[in-house]
Design a protein around this nucleic acid. Structure first.
Lengths: 195, 195
DNA sequence: GCCTAAATAGCACGACCGTGCTGAAATTGT
DNA sequence: ACAATTTCAGCACGGTCGTGCTATTTAGGC
């Protein structure tokens, strides 16, 4: 059983890209089949329901995010360097990976008032992400590069706000200075927590 | 022509609330008719197309936002007080007005990759909002309360990031400390630009 | 190279979508 | 109060949605 697994993975990669553009709700089996060049029913057989398709799409997006953003960043030296690496990798992820920007940003706004397993899974993802930021910031505190009384959860909140502002400026407003403003905001934040 | 205008306005108010929960794309004429207790065709007759319905819904949301958030804030004293008033009013708007949070935050993430008149209208709204923040910040510079070299466009970017982080923490994560973290982030930002 | 099992296509279904048309009901101006 | 006009409901349409069932093609183990 190798062929099925391969096409299923390919389908999910298509699905991630579509979901980043139109959202999870508008991700339709028909358009996904067209993109994957398969019949609707042939594609559907891989997932027993649309909800399963959405769940697996979100989960594969999580795996890819861990692979291309979190894991590489964690190999940077402890402390502020690692915090910077995390932020830089997120910026690349949101800019270059998917044609619709960060799929989690879109999903967060779409699902925040629609209860269900998909929303629950997304909340877990987002909490993990915020925890990673806070934990990496904590290493900078331990290394003596951030002030000892730094509130790392607040730091994660602030960093997250900057990433959301970037997404807004870059994708909705098409502001050519989005990256510049984003980096400036991040530098200001770093300056405010440094020892 | 008074009756038609009244029901049309009532329909749009229902539409704003639904759009804040499920988005503009999933805002369906059938569910809107049910909510408004009208027939689908009777409701449809008020708007010649779904696109018109979406456009008018967004425009009425803009009017309401100006009425409940911007206009009252502009009557606060010039300077930092007015900046604070603007922020506080936004927080109330996003918390209490609609059952799905700020409809613009949802729309921004939904429409950022879907070209068309609706997206164009939203971009204009968001640009106006950022301009208002920057302009109000400029009064604080003029009053000597903010540092003379303050970059007010950057300030608007930063404030906007905080509001997006609030929406995420409050609506998606259901974090009971969302407001507290938001206010702290805002105070830190104010401290960094004060003269 | 067959035989079993997996992968995919074809087709049909009920439901809901946006959108017209047509006639009844309600509002409004005089 | 009547006439003219606006407002609304009923109904129908083609299209797409998610999802089953039934073949048919393909792939993998002996």
């Amino acid at each position: 059983m190798g062929k099925g697994e391969a096409t299923r993975a390919a389908i999910l990669d298509d699905a991630i890209d579509i979901a980043s553009k139109v959202g999870f709700g508008a991700l339709t089996i028909g358009m996904l089949a067209e993109q994957a060049e398969m019949s609707k029913s042939g594609l559907f057989a891989h997932f027993k329901s649309k909800e399963q398709l959405q769940l697996q799409t979100l989960d594969r997006a999580r795996e890819r995010f861990v692979d291309v953003a979190i894991r590489p960043a964690l190999s940077a030296p402890r402390g502020e360097a690692r915090v910077r690496a995390l932020f830089d990798h997120w910026l690349r992820w949101a800019s270059d990976t998917l044609s619709g920007g960060c799929v989690f940003v879109g999903a967060a706004a779409e699902l925040d008032d629609q209860p269900g397993p998909l929303r629950d899974a997304l909340v877990r993802n987002e909490q993990d992400w915020l925890d990673v930021i806070a934990q990496v910031a904590q290493t900078a505190v331990s290394e003596g590069e951030f002030a000892p009384d730094t509130d790392v959860v607040q730091f994660a909140f602030d960093v997250h706000g900057i990433t959301l502002a970037f997404h807004h400026a870059s994708r909705l407003m098409r502001d050519p200075r989005a990256t510049e403003r984003t980096r400036r905001a991040f530098e200001n934040l770093l300056a405010s927590v440094r020892a």
